[in-house]
Simulated scan of single mutants.
Amino acid sequence: MERKIAMVTGATSGIGKACALILAKNGFNIIATGRRAERLDALKNEVPEGIEVLPLVFDVRDKESVFKLIENLPDNWKKIDVLLNNAGNAHGLDPIQTGSLDDWDAMMDINVKGLLYVSKAVIPGMTERKSGTIINIGSIAGKEVYPNGNVYCGSKHAVDAITKGMRIDLNPFGIKVIAIHPGLVETEFSVVRFKGDEEKADKVYQGFDPLLAQDIAEIVEFCVNRPAHVVLADIVVLPTAQASATIVNKNL
């Protein structure tokens, strides 16, 4: 029996890695992408026996690498059934007037353009086959704006809008398009946002139980296992302690 194939971007850690592993447990062969080759290679030792992992080392911002590697996949890896656009980041938490241009470029290039590049490379195969599932990992920041979130929120609002546009444009082809918008998830996210300041990053998750990468992976698992006529189009998931992007009960 031919196994289905899932491509997961940003599969080296956090949500991406958890999703790659749970999809592997559900019988998918995995195309795992990311910038850290050693972490992608390590995935091969964590998946169930019989599951294949194809590591693709690239930065989603690098348009030429994205298209070169995806368009030249081995024939037995070309039929991608599930695309999980997970690669994304937040850089800095500054008011608009003092924000870093480099931070802005990184967020827009990875969160928006990177998602578009990978999708553009994968979608033609899905439209040709008239089947497939695309899952875009957004954020609560794509549903509301919070102080000092400005450009990051803008990038995630773009993910929300692009996902809705994809769903409309790909509707004639029977392709499922799903957005998952998490609130606070304890991953490397805050370490990156605070430029490696682990003490500051740890404080983000103190005093309450945040979501875990596995929580998001289990939602992905549920989505891909729905019947053909069912699509969970737009999902917002928060830890119980969180009511909005800025309201978190740290006394629970």
Rank of each mutant, 00 (worst) to 15 (best):
K130V: 00
I140A: 11
N249Q: 03
V151A: 08
A213F: 10
G16E: 11
P172R: 00
G142L: 14
F58Q: 11
S155H: 05
A161G: 14
G92K: 13
M166T: 02
L93Q: 10
A106K: 12
F173D: 05
I216H: 00
R36F: 04
G142A: 13
N26F: 06
V53W: 03
L101Y: 13
N45V: 05
L101T: 10
H91C: 14
E2H: 07
A20R: 08
V204M: 13
K164D: 15
H229R: 13
E46C: 04
M166N: 05
A24E: 02
K130Q: 13
E71F: 06
A141E: 15
T9F: 06
V82D: 01
D81F: 03
R226F: 07
N171S: 03
K44P: 00
V231C: 08
K143N: 14
H229L: 09
T9D: 13
A158Y: 11
T133A: 07
P182F: 10
C19T: 15
E199D: 15
M166H: 04
F67S: 08
P172M: 05
P227C: 03
D109E: 15
A11D: 12
K25H: 14
F222R: 05
K25C: 06
P227F: 00
G16S: 09
V230H: 00
S155F: 07
G125S: 05
C223V: 15
L252P: 01
V177Y: 07
Y152M: 03
R167C: 05
K120R: 15
G88Q: 07
N148Y: 15
N76F: 08
C19E: 14
R61D: 05
H91D: 10
R193G: 06
K195L: 04
K164M: 12
G207N: 08
E46A: 02
A241M: 06
H157L: 04
G16M: 11
P227Y: 00
V220L: 14
A217G: 11
T187A: 06
I137V: 15
V60D: 08
D102C: 00
D62P: 00
D103T: 10
M126R: 08
P239R: 02
A217N: 09
V191F: 02
A37P: 03
S65R: 13
G138W: 09
D81Y: 08
M126H: 09
Y146H: 04
L232H: 01
E199C: 01
K200V: 10
I247M: 03
A141C: 15
Y205N: 09
D215I: 12
H157D: 07
T133Q: 12
L54H: 07
L232W: 11
L212A: 13
V177C: 14
A161W: 11
G88I: 03
F58A: 08
V192C: 02
I110E: 02
A11M: 11
A106N: 10
M108N: 05
I5F: 02
D103H: 15
M126T: 06
